[in-house]
Write a protein that binds this DNA or RNA. Sequence first.
DNA 1: ATCGGCATTTAAAACGTTTTGAGTTTTTCG
DNA 2: CGAAAAACTCAAAACGTTTTAAATGCCGAT
Lengths: 349, 349
Amino acid sequence: MATLKDISAELGLSVATVSRALNGFPEVSARTRARVQDVADRIGYKPNRIAQRLVTGRSGMVGFIAKLNADMTADQTFLEILTGLTAALAERDVDLVLSVDQHDDPVTVYERMLERGILDGFILNAPVPNDPRVAFLQARGIPFVMHGQSDPEVHYPFYGIDNRAVSRDAVSLLATLGHRRIALLNGDINFSFAIDREEGFREAVAQEGLNTPEAFIGHETPSESYGYTEALAMLSGRRGAQPTAIVCGSTLIAAGVMRAAKDLGLSVPSDLSLIAHDDALPQFRAVNFDPPLTVTRSPLRDACSPLANHLIDHIAGGEADTLQTQIRAELIVRESTGPVPKGGTDPWP
Amino acid sequence: MATLKDISAELGLSVATVSRALNGFPEVSARTRARVQDVADRIGYKPNRIAQRLVTGRSGMVGFIAKLNADMTADQTFLEILTGLTAALAERDVDLVLSVDQHDDPVTVYERMLERGILDGFILNAPVPNDPRVAFLQARGIPFVMHGQSDPEVHYPFYGIDNRAVSRDAVSLLATLGHRRIALLNGDINFSFAIDREEGFREAVAQEGLNTPEAFIGHETPSESYGYTEALAMLSGRRGAQPTAIVCGSTLIAAGVMRAAKDLGLSVPSDLSLIAHDDALPQFRAVNFDPPLTVTRSPLRDACSPLANHLIDHIAGGEADTLQTQIRAELIVRESTGPVPKGGTDPWP
DNA sequence: ATCGGCATTTAAAACGTTTTGAGTTTTTCG
DNA sequence: CGAAAAACTCAAAACGTTTTAAATGCCGAT
């Protein structure tokens, strides 16, 4: 393995000059830089990252901790995030150290990983309101980036979508189509994203002047079966008034709703309109639904690169407030939404 | 972050002695060692991995590279492995650096990760015959451990099950129950484990003196739909003789077979016996099938700890040949297997 | 009392890099 | 031409650990 010393010896320069030449410092002459570069290329010099890290205090490694659900399965989005993240980090020459959290206390794993002293920062996902990880890491001065926001106003770097707008856009489209009875099958309400979606939903239905009973709003860890059972209960009339449109927190839930509608002999969109939020997971594509789903779309994969860059920039000293990005999910109208069916606008019984 | 110097300053010892005391060198007195250990514990000293690595050449970090399938989804077993692995490695104070491989060439990602020079070794999974990663890593002298075996005789550490025995056990049970027409729906035949299962299957049917047409042996990336379509084709008689028993490469495939049987009005086990290999993924439990599945069982999670330990021991200098473990998957007879139905023993048409 | 031998401890070098502060050469300008 | 400024280069320190080689202290034996 070639070292700086090898180059310096060959050229009769000091290692200091060689180091500067290779790192593009301005005070080294063009001629010297060229000579150094030549030799470096010729003998295939690669800086020893370990040595670099020892002196700079940076390791070029960031941590990601996957949280297992109670049923010991990680959510589906996890792998998608991981894939994009390692690729995006690799672009900037950073490695990802992974751990899977099986504890109850959300911060113990972070603590354990910090003990090693090899991490420059963390990437966090699935924020909850007043997230304890935020307090912990901020208290220790450890840089991190969040996928999403734990709270409306935060002082750390993040990248995420406007979840209130997701619901507002969905409701607004449905209201335009004449729907007056709109239900929401949301994701796990413990997470900030689901809370925001529900708040946005309530805001929007209020603004449209719609009557929305509590029975129209549900939330649970997304699954096909949740969508199925809940939609069956709502659409069969067992719970009173039936919705003419359902907004789903995920395409998985929408699949269940679809099946329920089919079992009840309802067709989409003539009897029931459906909008889902679509993270664009490759396993489960909204366009492949029958009919293709109208969605608020925001590919999870798109978040990876900004997350990686925000974190790396933050580690390099970038101000947290300048590294906050909130984007608007795209509303894509396909064929699962249509005008309210006859009778759908009837006053409440 | 506490360093050796902090401890040495506090006790009035040299850093050399402190280092030796903590690393269990014999020449330090028991009293000194205890004093050092006390202070180290109190101030929460953890050796700086980076500094250790610079001088020893070891980092305490190992790599794992997840391979995406062509459809950009990783197989289901990946997360299970990852979970167990990080836990097992953490036990021995080793971290896992992850990368997701989106390349065609299987070794480029390994090459890229090695360039950084921060990894002590790798954990490999999903071996294929004559695995190029093996050749690559062995040529470079990089330690690794394999989940499974790429070939019948290998010279690297591994942990895995006897896949030939998996098929033999299944066939043997079915033969005992009188079945003469046994089919195999195997996993992706590119992988060594599937090749071994098929070979074991062929050996076993031959030994039992059974007639098994090629149409009885299929293989594909495990999925419910593969099990369904393939079973439908076989059981409907469209392909000629119908099997009275099917051995499935995974519980996922078995689920599809179950659905096909149901659609054809066949009941399990009276009309069709079913055995699956069960990796014991928590999402998909063989006991929850109706009827509960007879399986060859080998929890994936069980592999993690041996894999971690084999690798760490190998890095520490353990001989590859002493770090090879092959276990036998357990045959668990439940209710999806039964005596061959009437007419099932008929000679071939 | 002195020496050898043993147990314990220490100082210092090493790993490969970055960076500080100081030195040396070259250029610029009066 | 000479001095000040600019441009370039260097030696050395630092990062935190392991390890080599040397030193210290203590003991019993000479």
